[in-house]
C-alpha cells in the first residue's frame, strides 16, 4: 500500500513502488486530465506538481511521491487566472498537451510572477505541442501574469 495525497485527497493504492506516478493517477485514481505523451520525460504532457514543483509524472516512481502533496490539473480551481486566461485566448487546439502546459505555467508563475518571453521559452521548452499553440501559450502566460498582478486569485 502506498499513501498518496492528490489534490488534497488521501488515497491508499495497492501498486508496486516502481510504477510511474502517471499511471497510478490515470488508471488507479481515475484522474485522466494528466496525459501520456512519451513516457520518457520528453514532452511534458504528464506534468503534475509535487510539493508545488512541476514534475514529469511518467518518470516519477510512485514511491517518490508518497507522502508529498501532489496536484494534478483537476486540482487547479476553475477560476484560476491561468485557466481564465487560457479561455480568453482560446489557447488549445486538439487540447491533448494543454493540461501539461497549464501545470507548467502555474508552477512557472509561482516562481516568477512576471516572466519575460525568454523566461517563458526556457521554462516551457519541455512542454511540446504537436498542434503548435506556442504563440498563444506565451501570450496567455503574459495575460495570466497580469491578471494575477491585478489581484486575480492565484
Amino acid at each position: 500500500m502506498i499513501s498518496l495525497d492528490v489534490n488534497g485527497k488521501k488515497y491508499d493504492v495497492d501498486v508496486s513502488p516502481d510504477v510511474p506516478l502517471l499511471w497510478v493517477i490515470r488508471e488507479h485514481l481515475g484522474l485522466t486530465g494528466t496525459k501520456f505523451g512519451c513516457g520518457i520525460a520528453q514532452c511534458g504532457a504528464c506534468t503534475v506538481h509535487i510539493n508545488g514543483k512541476a514534475k514529469r509524472s511518467c518518470r516519477t516512481p510512485v514511491k517518490d511521491a508518497a507522502g508529498k502533496k501532489i496536484t494534478t490539473i483537476e486540482g487547479i480551481p476553475e477560476d484560476h487566472p491561468v485557466i481564465k486566461s487560457w479561455i480568453v485566448d482560446d489557447v488549445p487546439q486538439c487540447g491533448y498537451c494543454q493540461p501539461g502546459q497549464i501545470m507548467s505555467v502555474v508552477a512557472l508563475l509561482k516562481e516568477n510572477p512576471a516572466p519575460t518571453d525568454k523566461d517563458i521559452d526556457d521554462f516551457m521548452s519541455g512542454n511540446l505541442c504537436r498542434c503548435g499553440t506556442y504563440q498563444r501559450v506565451r501570450r496567455s502566460i503574459h495575460r495570466a501574469s497580469k491578471m494575477m498582478a491585478e489581484g486575480g486569485k492565484s
Partner: peptide
C-alpha cells in the same frame, strides 16, 4: 471555441 473550457481543465 466551445471546447476550450473542457480542454483547459483536463
Amino acid at each position: 471555441r466551445l471546447d476550450t473550457p473542457d480542454k483547459s481543465m483536463g
